[in-house]
């Protein structure tokens, strides 16, 4: 059960981000997480959409440059040290985190974090081995 992140190339100009979010909104796509990495000249918009496949074809149709990347979403215990424990597990498993960001979705006792790592399987096994959970598509509102 892979969760795919959509990355979009962003030029640094006013209104570019809003054009993309509006395009998705007009097509009834619900964004579950969003993060931007930027240099002084351009940026990479990363997002988790409820319907990744449809969102990506809409973006492509409008001439955007996109890339799809499998990511890992971990259900992080929502209590002090919750994230710290998750990160320790990942570190102990010898997995490098390229970047991470959080989901808008939140359960009573869980927060959700998106991790981009080299080796999703390994991460998933390590998390489960420590009695923690990987998010399911359903619980974070993905189709």
């Amino acid at each position: 059960m892979n969760i795919y992140q959509i990355s979009v190339f962003l030029e640094n100009r006013a209104g570019q981000l809003s054009e993309i979010t509006k395009l998705l909104a007009d097509n009834g796509i619900n964004l579950r997480a969003i993060s931007i990495a930027e240099t002084s000249d351009y940026g990479v918009l990363r997002m988790i959409a409820d319907d990744a496949e449809r969102a990506s074809s809409i973006l492509l149709e409008q001439g955007n440059i996109i890339s799809m990347t499998p990511v890992s979403v971990v259900a992080v215990p929502d209590r002090p040290a919750g994230l710290s424990e998750v990160l320790s597990i990942i570190a102990e498993a010898g997995i490098d985190i390229e970047y991470m960001y959080s989901l808008f979705t939140h359960a009573d006792d869980k927060a959700y974090m998106v991790f981009r790592v080299d080796g999703e399987e390994k991460l998933s096994s390590a998390i489960k081995a420590h009695d923690m959970e990987m998010a399911t598509k359903e619980e974070i509102g993905l189709k």
């Binding site: 990355s7 190339f9 990479v44 440059i65 890339s67």
Partner: peptide, 15 residues
């Protein structure tokens, strides 16, 4: 112009 083959989710790769 950015091209699909040179684009990725990783800023490091793009730079």
């Amino acid at each position: 112009e950015m091209s699909p083959e040179n684009f990725s989710d990783s800023l490091k790769k793009i730079t």
